[in-house]
Design a protein around this nucleic acid. Structure first.
Lengths: 350, 350
DNA sequence: GGCATATTTGACAGCGCTAGCACCGAGATG
DNA sequence: CATCTCGGTGCTAGCGCTGTCAAATATGCC
């Protein structure tokens, strides 16, 4: 069955192709009755406009790009799931644009990539969303874009993020409420600006609870499992008195690394050490014990980003917009009350 | 800088646009000297053909679809990374086509999806690649497709797979070599036909080593972490004598579930029980202890699939082709010698 | 009713490329 | 030497839409 064209629809509805085009593009000035007639014809013929023809005629591609770093495949997939639905609804297609975050030629790569694919706009996932060079390249091309979870928001850009700082503060407070006084923190990759906010939240939380920041309890990680392992070794390889009773990592992968070290030292989670992550990646519930973490609503953020991008393309959105979707604290088995030594008053064994 | 068009290139090279078009499409009958001239002009103008125009004129879209099940995001991403590179090189773009594997309307959804996006061909990732209904829908539309890691190969289709059976046999033999005599197996979701091959490999391996198949050591899982947990409980909740000393799960996620159960029973991995997975997903090296597993070369398989699809589109490929990319056994910390009780002869403690 | 204004609709020319066929010149053939 | 062949090239008509602008129709006012 050959695909029907706009001409077929026009013939069936007894109008000109231009009117059909108007209906397709939601132009207001079509009489309801005629619009109805056209829609019926479209339905009857199972007509789908040819994107290539639309693109060629309208000087746009109806393609949206999802720029992501190849090493962050999981994140990209989650973003995709939220992004694609909205885009589809708006008759846009999504093309994936893998990038190598660490390549020196990144800005050039991005430019070539988007020019070649002729996308109408892109969304940037972290860590790309933090790179001035990438944003600059996009601006040079005058290509609309929305950033997901960028660290710096000051620039004149559209972005969607979550409340990293507040949720990390809340998590820190929860740990304190469980009796933890020596709460360690593993900072994420400094390249990912958003994770700095997580650290700030940790500091806020300590302060709220009257705990004072102990720099020996802060380690610098790089978002990877192995950096989590290294940080955990550093944090735990001390006398028992100085050992943290809880370790809060800036992402789940590093938290998983912590778990490994704790196990291999013969310590128990959460009896000896509580462990907390961030993201609620699938990994968080597939390690043992399952990680308490902070669920970042990636799909929802992506949907909002799609919204912003589509509206920007339609021209009814200011240059600078920022949306915040709250994260939610999620408690699983990796957290528990602080061990007795930390709070000598209420000694009980179980 | 406005994008240049084929007309600009033709003018600069002093030829007709048709000749430029021939160069772009690798038509043989262009004099080397002229071809050279055109290529230089293309380079100088940084010309990229407009895909929409190519699509419209040539009656194809230069779009390739990647059909995947939304619940298998990770797998899709890995496939993508291998797929996109080849496609790009051939000036094709990749669009992601998420599907709901379990929807009754799946064949209709697939049809609508591919018709709407106008893709020229698609690749199918598991579990989609096993569904007759999906393949049927695609055939009805006469849309070329390549299946990745399907279980049944008998049909008249193009596919790329790995040697599930052989590698699982080899892994089973390795476990036997380590002294394991009670090797349990967790079968994967029966919907994913490829995993049945893994079970067959396990049976082969047992046979090769002179171990006999004990049905009480075989559990039926569903590829998820939680089904791994359930199977492990069933397998381990027996007297010590009957307990398996090694558990081989058909994928890493289930193996991670096994790990959790072993830990929570107070047993040690690999001292009391060795655990093995399949896939070498990121998860495998992010649990503790890191999983011995079988690395499925997904990206490479995807690249081959892209190759097959592109050649099929070019018309120089028979209907039925099957490529096999071998998996590789990967040993990490989750496997070790069988505990002494299983081989009472060489008692040593450490 | 007659006129000036909205409002709604249609005719038509591209968008940048490919496909089909016509064309041109050089070597092969009679 | 005329004719044929054929590799190499150019001309031109679309592909299915959108944008522009003009035409047709509806609405408001005196």
């Amino acid at each position: 069955m050959a695909n029907s064209t706009i001409t077929d629809v026009a013939a069936h509805a007894g109008v000109s192709i231009k009117t059909v085009s108007r209906v397709l593009n939601n132009v207001a000035s079509v009489k309801p009755q005629i619009r109805e007639r056209v829609l019926r014809a479209i339905q009857r013929l199972d007509y789908h406009p040819n994107p290539s023809a639309r693109a060629l005629g309208g000087n746009r591609s109806y393609l949206l790009g999802l720029l992501y770093d190849v090493t962050c495949g999981y994140y990209a997939t989650s973003v995709l799931s939220g992004f694609i639905e909205r885009s589809r609804a708006a008759k846009y297609q999504v093309v994936m644009e893998p990038c190598d975050y660490s390549a020196p030629s990144l800005p050039e790569d991005v430019k070539r990539s988007v020019r070649q694919s002729r996308v109408d706009g892109v969304i940037l996932t972290p860590p790309l969303s933090d790179l001035k060079s990438v944003c600059g390249a996009l601006e040079e091309l005058a290509l609309p874009f929305v950033r997901i979870a960028p660290g710096r928001h000051g620039d004149h850009h559209r972005s969607v993020c979550t409340n990293d700082r507040e949720s990390c503060a809340a998590m820190t407070e929860q740990l304190a409420t469980l009796g933890h006084q020596r709460i360690a923190f593993i900072v994420g990759n400094p390249d990912h600006a958003a994770v700095m906010d997580r650290y700030r939240g940790y500091v806020d939380g300590l302060q709220t609870c009257g705990l004072k920041l102990d720099k020996t309890l802060v380690a610098q990680g790089y978002n990877s499992y192995s950096s989590g392992v290294q940080c955990a070794r550093k944090l735990l390889n001390v006398s028992q008195a100085k050992r943290p009773t809880a370790i809060f990592a800036s992402n789940d992968e590093m938290a998983a690394g912590v778990l490994g070290v704790v196990h291999s030292l013969g310590l128990a989670v959460p009896e000896d050490v509580s462990v907390v992550g961030f993201d609620d990646a699938p990994l968080a519930s597939q390690v043992w014990p399952a990680l308490s973490t902070i669920r970042q609503p990636i799909a929802e953020m992506a949907a909002q980003a799609a919204d912003l991008l589509l509206r920007a393309l339609a021209g009814d959105l200011p240059d600078q917009v920022r949306r915040v979707i709250p994260s939610v604290l999620t408690f699983r088995l990796s957290t528990g009350p602080a061990p007795n030594r930390a709070r000598p008053k209420a000694a009980k064994s179980g």
